[in-house]
Amino acid sequence: MKISTKGRYGLTIMIDLAKKHGNGPTSLKSIAKDNDLSEHYLEQLASPLRNAGLIKSIRGAYGGYVLAKDPKEIKAGDIIRVLEGPITPVEGIENEEPAKQALWIRIRDAVKDVLDTTTLEDLINYEDEGPKEAYMFYI
């Protein structure tokens, strides 16, 4: 399974909004500038995220976007499914022989597990603290 720029940039939007959660709306222009991305492209991604109930738009001079829920309630899988569709590594696995079919199902389930157990809060904490398993000790 390959995540396209839609999924990657959608996660970027959501992580930025999670970092600023509770501090009022954030414009897509500022997210685009901070991450060196196209504001027009981010606007295209914001619409399905809003329609899915993951973000809210605030109109006005100081408007922008805010998360519709707390960062610990939004999973990476929610975002990826909205922007990329169903999580499946291979199409048409029902036509595969049983051994290969079982492999594709295990891969799909492993990816789903990671995406569905990783929240926006986890992602912003990861950026702040770094990966926990990266700490290595030599004896």
Rank of each mutant, 00 (worst) to 15 (best):
K33M: 10
Y41G: 03
L83W: 01
I107G: 02
I3A: 05
G63H: 08
G85H: 00
P86F: 12
D109M: 05
A99M: 06
T118E: 04
I79H: 03
L83P: 02
Y41C: 03
I15D: 00
S4G: 09
N35V: 00
S27E: 09
K56E: 15
R108G: 12
K132G: 10
D113W: 07
E39T: 04
D34H: 08
A18F: 01
L45D: 00
A52I: 06
K2Q: 07
L11F: 01
T12N: 02
I15A: 02
E96P: 03
T119L: 13
P86W: 09
K29I: 15
I13R: 00
I93R: 10
L37I: 05
G24M: 01
E97D: 11
D36Q: 11
I80M: 01
L28Y: 02
F137R: 10
S38K: 10
H40N: 13
I87W: 04
I139W: 09
A68M: 07
L67H: 01
V82C: 07
S47C: 10
D113G: 14
Y41T: 05
S38H: 06
A134Q: 15
W104M: 12
L11Y: 00
L11P: 01
L103A: 11
D122A: 12
R108M: 08
G24F: 08
F137M: 14
I79Q: 01
S57C: 11
N125M: 09
I58M: 06
K29R: 12
I80H: 07
I105V: 09
P48V: 06
P131Q: 14
G10P: 05
P131T: 13
I80W: 09
D36N: 15
T117I: 10
D113T: 14
N35W: 00
E97N: 12
A76F: 02
F137P: 08
P98R: 08
Y138Q: 13
S27Y: 03
N35D: 00
E73F: 10
V66Y: 00
R106T: 08
W104Y: 12
S30H: 13
L37T: 04
E121C: 04
S30V: 13
I93S: 03
E43A: 13
R50E: 13
L11A: 03
I105A: 12
V66T: 10
Y65M: 02
E96S: 14
I74D: 07
A18K: 07
D113H: 07
E91C: 08
P25N: 06
R8E: 15
I139H: 15
K72V: 11
P71C: 09
S38W: 01
G64M: 03
S57T: 11
V90L: 13
D36S: 09
E39L: 04
L103V: 13
A110W: 11
N35T: 00
E133T: 15
N125T: 11
K19G: 05
D116C: 05
V66W: 01
E96G: 09
K112L: 14
N35P: 01
E133G: 15
Y135N: 11
V111H: 02
L49H: 02
